[in-house]
Design a protein around this nucleic acid. Structure first.
Lengths: 122, 122
DNA sequence: GCACATATATGTAAATATCATATAGTATGT
DNA sequence: ACATACTATATGATATTTACATATATGTGC
């Protein structure tokens, strides 16, 4: 069942931040290095939505494999050690490309929503 | 390789219309019944992007299974017969829900792009 | 010791995406 | 008649992504 709208059809959620998780992560990391759990909190704070933490960790490892981020373990007095992620120059390049893609997505959405509202009022 | 940005990392494309294919199809169908090939042309015309035709046909069958559309074969003098799709009331309900999700997505994107541009100028 | 928050990671199954290929009717040019 | 192109639907095979559950471990407060 869809998490957001509650429809019984399928799980796909068109308003889900997880569809744009990588650019969001890279944007946060471009403001400062962080670790998985911290990014989860940052994403929830900035996007107002829960993210699947397991998914997030796997996404981060995939992003590291892809060269967008690099990580290293850091000691943490107040809890378990953390794997801290830092954006790479390749990650910055990708963030730039993803942003222009997202501008296109934004235009697409506007066209859709205009079309939808026109349809509703007709 | 990503179709849009050409990056070598992975195929994910944040500007891809196929991420919102179902609402787009339902919007087109809410303006009038159509068949797979016709929807492909409609999507390309309204969204300026090619869609994978195989994916589109499978998506339509899935949407029928989910109850959002129904289909019937229609004779076509000028070519092969067509499977014509019509939106159902369940499909209209879903379109309404998807639209409010997409409004949220739109806000999310704006927040992201604002954050990105602020970051760039800093 | 126990519960709870922090912190990372993986197992598994289902859903989707990607790319190629199969099949067939109609139209047009040679 | 034959080749080619366009229209039209569909599926095979594989890879990727998503969803949900579970495992593991550290530190804090009671």
């Amino acid at each position: 069942m869809c998490k957001t709208c509650g429809c019984s059809f399928r799980s796909r959620d068109f308003g889900n931040i997880e569809r744009f998780i990588e650019p969001c992560i890279l944007l946060l990391l471009s403001k400062g290095s962080s670790h998985g759990y911290g990014l989860m909190e940052g994403l929830e704070k900035h996007c107002g939505e829960k993210v699947d933490i397991g998914d997030l960790y796997r996404t981060l490892r995939r992003m590291e494999r892809d060269g967008w981020v690099k990580s290293n373990w850091e000691k943490n007095k107040g809890g378990p050690d953390r794997r801290t992620y830092t954006i790479t120059s390749e990650g910055k390049d990708f963030l730039r490309l993803a942003s222009s893609s997202l501008i296109r997505t934004d235009k697409l959405l506007h066209r859709f929503l205009e079309g939808y509202q026109k349809n509703q009022s007709a």
